[in-house]
Amino acid sequence: MGFDLSILAKHVPFLLEGLWLTTVVCLGALAGSIVLGIVVAACRTAASPLARRLSAIYVDVFRNIPFIVQLFFFYFGLPEVGIYIEAAPTGIIALSIAGGAYTSDVIRAGILAIEPGILEAAEVSGLTRRKIFTMVILPIALRTSIRPLGAVCVNLVLTSSVLSTITLNELTGSAKIVAAETFRPFEVYAALLIAYACLTYAVSGLFGALHRHVNRHTAGEVA
């Protein structure tokens, strides 16, 4: 039997359902990891040594343990402590926590790159510390870190394929089912490989466009 992609045609709607789930999970995890990343980045650049130490440990631990181990920790562990949630929310939570570690690093770099003069000006103007963070530091830091955030998002999309191991039928999970039904695994997974490459290509293109749009007035300063 040769290479024949046409057998995939009638399974396309099913695969698109998987793609939809992948999209939903990734958007949820992206939102979660950005919120978590902002909080952790604030802690890592805070004046308090305790907050700095704790947040550094969080980033270190979640960057150095494989995602699948973290995922199993939550998937098998949460019911143990009486939290019964389905695979999809578990996956979004695990992806957000793992992604938060990377996001916080990106946002921290953005915060550290801000000129001290801007912060001094804000302090002299009599703004409260909270106002300085939310209205001065954060907008500048987020604006400069859009491109690296795009790289984190691409990684989120790729990592979301691991969720198929906890019975979540996202794109990879549904491809597994199609491969088992048609018994043409090579065609299915080759098509899936291309599909993921296109998806990540689109995601990084989107973030590139966002970066150009947000930084359109400062084109000279922010390369």
Binding site: V154, L158, T159, S161, V162, S164, T172, A175, K176, A179, P185, F186, Y189, A190, L192, L193, Y196, A197, T200, Y201
Partner: peptide, 11 residues
């Protein structure tokens, strides 16, 4: 680089 390792493994 742009596809999940899991899918490469399955392939």
């Amino acid at each position: 680089k742009n596809s999940p390792v899991l899918v490469q493994l399955f392939l």
